[in-house]
Simulated scan of single mutants.
Amino acid sequence: MKVSALKPAADPGSGSLRLLATFDLELSDQIRLYGLRLLQAPDGRRIVYAAQSGSRRTATFDPLLAERITQLASQTYSEATTAHGSNSKS
Rank of each mutant, 00 (worst) to 15 (best):
E79Y: 03
A73N: 00
L38V: 07
L33S: 07
S90A: 14
S78F: 02
A5N: 15
T60K: 07
G13P: 04
T70M: 04
R68T: 10
L19A: 11
Q52R: 15
T70W: 01
F23Y: 09
R57E: 15
L33A: 11
Q71V: 08
T82D: 15
L33M: 14
T81G: 05
E67C: 01
P42G: 04
R32T: 12
Q71H: 05
D29K: 13
S55D: 15
R56A: 14
E26K: 12
P8W: 08
Q40A: 13
L65D: 13
P8V: 12
L72N: 02
G44D: 09
K7M: 13
A51L: 10
R32V: 08
R18L: 09
Q30H: 10
D62Y: 04
A41C: 07
D62T: 06
L33G: 02
A10C: 02
R57Y: 13
R56S: 13
D11C: 02
A73K: 00
Q40C: 09
A10G: 08
A21F: 05
L25V: 07
S55C: 04
A9S: 13
S86R: 09
L25T: 07
L39K: 00
L27I: 13
S88V: 13
S90H: 14
L27T: 08
A83W: 01
R46M: 03
H84P: 01
S28T: 15
S53G: 14
Q71A: 12
K89W: 03
S28W: 04
A73V: 04
F23K: 07
I69F: 00
S88W: 06
A9N: 05
S14T: 14
S16I: 10
L39F: 01
Q40W: 00
S28I: 11
T22N: 10
A59K: 09
S28E: 11
S14K: 13
R56I: 14
L65R: 08
R56G: 05
D43A: 09
G35F: 04
A51M: 09
